[in-house]
Simulated scan of single mutants.
Amino acid sequence: MGVSKAQLLERLQAQQIQFSQYDHPVVMTVEEQAKHVGHIKAGLSKNLFLKDKKHRLYIVSALADTKVDLKVLSQRLGLGKGGLRMAPEEAVTEILEVPLGSVTPFALVNESARNVSLLLDQGFKTHECCFFHPLSNDTTISLNIQDLYTFVKSLGRIVAYVDLEANPTVGKDQPPDLANLVPSDISSVQNVVEKTANLKIDGDVNSKPVAVIAKASKVSSDQQKEKPGKVSSGQSKEKLVNTANSFADPEKFIEEILKKVTDIVVDEVKVENIKQRGDQLGVVVSNSIKKNLTLELKNLATTFKNTAYTEGFGAGRESITLLLKR
């Protein structure tokens, strides 16, 4: 179950964020919302929940009168002209954990939305206060946009101000200006792994503990179907099992982290990137490492902890069984 409206408002108060609250009947559109709060001086917001072809998710939060062209935004993110589309309704309730019609940046307070990227309309800065639903569309609160930005950043989420009506040229010499806001590809796989992080032990005393890698194997197998000719599903499973075993060994765990850092650096430091970014390449590499590695390191650490716990639990059970047999 996600964070409730009451819990969110308590958290805002605890962080000394000032807001005004307006209760009203359930509304599904900005036009309906305006009937209840439109007479109050604040900027109305519209919020789009989007996905790209790789099922990465985004919330685009904009002033009600801001024109958001999804084709242009897709190009600016480096996703191609048709890269963005509306996320399915079930993703609203399962990922954001809010009712339909209640999508706002506040939904990122839920852990299930940890890999959702947030684009805030730069136009919000022209208003002293702005309106948002606090996880429920039977209430509207107004607050300073910088307080909202600070709150979301404190959650460790990806968030940035964007001129959503800009249409910069994207080409060989002008890379997508918003590409750094695209969530890393690995996060969707890790989501599935973490959701199945309930450790299970087989009833047979002599059997080995079952860790959370089973779900990851399924995801990897699905990915292989999308990219034929690289690795068979059997090889994929074997690789994942070997990776899982490495999480019980601290030295191999460190090697795994260093490998991921190296892969990111090598991917960024290419001849074409050096030519395009020049003196800014160091900053680009640093930002890329932070963006792509922060969540993954947390996930690796969790998997390492769970695997080590599982191995210890299994060993403990075997020791107790041997003692009872004596």
Score class of each variant (00 low, 15 high):
A64R: 02
A197Q: 14
I289H: 06
Q7S: 10
S246Y: 03
V231S: 05
E90D: 12
K225D: 10
N299T: 10
D204K: 11
G316N: 14
I264Y: 04
K260T: 13
A166K: 11
N245C: 13
I95K: 03
E268S: 11
R11Y: 02
E318K: 10
I201N: 12
L108G: 02
S61P: 03
K325S: 12
F106L: 04
D23F: 14
V72R: 09
Y22R: 12
T243W: 13
V170N: 07
L48P: 02
F124N: 03
G43W: 00
E10M: 07
I95N: 01
K54F: 15
I17T: 06
F49H: 01
C130Y: 04
L48Y: 02
E90F: 15
G234A: 13
G312V: 04
R157M: 02
D69T: 11
V60H: 01
D65M: 06
G38A: 07
K252G: 06
A34G: 02
I201Y: 01
V26G: 15
L297Q: 02
A42K: 03
P99C: 04
E94T: 14
K208M: 15
V170R: 03
N306P: 01
V241T: 04
G203A: 13
G43K: 02
L96V: 05
Q18T: 15
V26D: 15
I158C: 08
G229F: 11
Q7M: 09
A91I: 00
Q13G: 09
H127I: 08
K325D: 14
V116I: 05
F247T: 07
T126V: 12
L63P: 00
G203L: 07
V265N: 04
I264F: 03
D121C: 09
V109C: 03
G203V: 08
Q33R: 02
M1P: 06
F19N: 03
R277D: 09
D147M: 08
D121I: 05
V283G: 11
A179P: 00
V72Y: 10
A179I: 08
K200Q: 10
L8Y: 00
R317N: 12
L148S: 07
V162R: 01
A64N: 04
